[in-house]
Structure formats: C-alpha cells, structure tokens
Simulated assay, not measured.
Amino acid sequence: MIVLGLTGSIGMGKSTTAKLFAEAGVPVYDADATVHMIYEGEAVPAIEAAFPGTTADGKVDRQRLSAQVLHDPAAIQRLEQIVHPMLRAHHEKFLADAERSGAAVAVVDIPLLFETGGEKRVDAVLVVSATPEIQRQRILARDNMTDEKLNAILARQLPDAEKRRRADFVVDTSHGLDPVRERIRDILDQAAKIPRRRA
C-alpha cells in the first residue's frame, strides 16, 4: 500500500481535496478530525491538568486553549507532547485497517506534515495550493477569523512556495472542483508506480 501525505497551508482547499480522495474510494485519515475527537475524550484530563480552565462539560474548549497557547511556544510544545502520542496511535491504527482492507493507496491529511517531520512517514507528499489572494479571501470569510489570528497561524506554517518545492505532487484548487478531480485521477494512476519510501 502506498501512503500519500496530504498537506497545504490554511485556506488552500485541503479538506475539499481530502473529501474528493474519499469520494474516489481512497481511505483518508483526517488529523484535524482526530484532534476534535480526542479533545472530546481521551485528551481532556491531561489538557485540563496542564492548562487549567481550558475544558468545560468534559470537552476541551478550543477558544480558551488557543488563548492560553497561541503566543507561547513553550505552551504549544507542552500541548504537542500530550496530543502527538495519541494522534500517532490513531494514525497507526488507520494505516493497519487500510492495509487490511486491501487498499492500494491511503491518504493521510496532516496540516503540519513538513513542520512535524511527517514527510518521512509517507511514500509521497501531495501539497494543496491556491493563489495568495484566494487563500486570504477563503480564510477571512471564516467565523472568528481576524487578520491577527491568520498571521499567527501562517507564522507557524512553512511558506506555500517551500511546500510546493518539496512536494511530489501539487494540486491547485484555484479553478474549482473539476480540475482537482482530474488531478486526483492522475495522482492515483502515478501512485501505483511510486516506490515505497516511508520509514
């Protein structure tokens, strides 16, 4: 089974691209959805202990947590030490299940793939990209998003040009869904010929 790492900066159309892979019958692991799930379950006690007052009703309150960690690199690191081992366990289970199901290709959708060294754990990297104007427009249309918040998020992400340079495949989402579907078909054809390289 070939594992494709799907990544891209905020607002580039990564979630839509992941959905189109799933639509094409490819098993897709969604790191963000897994974070949501553990923030409503197994991660809650450890996060409350490390960051008191950031949980309510048995769930992590993402806004309170964000307010405590966003501008504090040491706090972000502490949070990652809690969350990453849990995510890794879910990720490994997903791959084992996909392999068992006989899938030829699996996609792991990981926003900070390069930033966390995740490219070593996949066979090829697929970067989702769009023009900077489209990116900004998409993000600022979201609820609770401000220029300041956007700049803080972008500061933690590798620049788009660098991601594209390091990618095996680039998917441009600037021109609607049909070109993306077509690109996915190309990538799936080529994926069958990729040598396995993950650690």
Score class of each variant (00 low, 15 high):
2 I>K: 05
5 G>W: 11
9 S>A: 09
12 M>H: 07
14 K>W: 10
15 S>D: 07
19 K>E: 14
25 G>Y: 12
25 G>F: 11
27 P>Q: 10
27 P>H: 08
32 D>V: 09
35 V>R: 06
35 V>S: 09
41 G>Y: 06
42 E>Q: 10
43 A>I: 13
44 V>D: 09
44 V>L: 09
47 I>G: 04
47 I>Y: 06
54 T>A: 07
55 T>Q: 09
58 G>D: 08
62 R>K: 15
65 L>V: 13
67 A>F: 01
67 A>G: 03
68 Q>S: 10
68 Q>W: 01
73 P>T: 10
76 I>M: 15
79 L>Y: 02
79 L>D: 05
79 L>V: 03
80 E>S: 13
81 Q>E: 14
83 V>P: 03
88 R>I: 10
89 A>N: 08
92 E>S: 14
93 K>P: 02
96 A>D: 14
101 S>L: 12
107 V>Y: 10
111 P>W: 08
118 G>I: 04
119 E>G: 02
119 E>N: 06
124 A>Y: 08
125 V>S: 01
130 A>I: 05
131 T>F: 07
132 P>W: 02
133 E>Y: 05
134 I>Q: 03
137 Q>R: 15
139 I>T: 13
139 I>W: 00
143 D>Y: 00
146 T>E: 10
147 D>Q: 13
150 L>E: 00
152 A>I: 11
155 A>H: 12
164 R>Q: 03
165 R>M: 08
170 V>C: 00
173 T>E: 02
174 S>N: 11
175 H>F: 10
176 G>T: 00
176 G>R: 02
177 L>D: 12
177 L>F: 06
179 P>H: 09
188 L>Y: 04
189 D>C: 11
190 Q>N: 13
191 A>Q: 08
192 A>R: 15
194 I>T: 13
199 A>W: 08
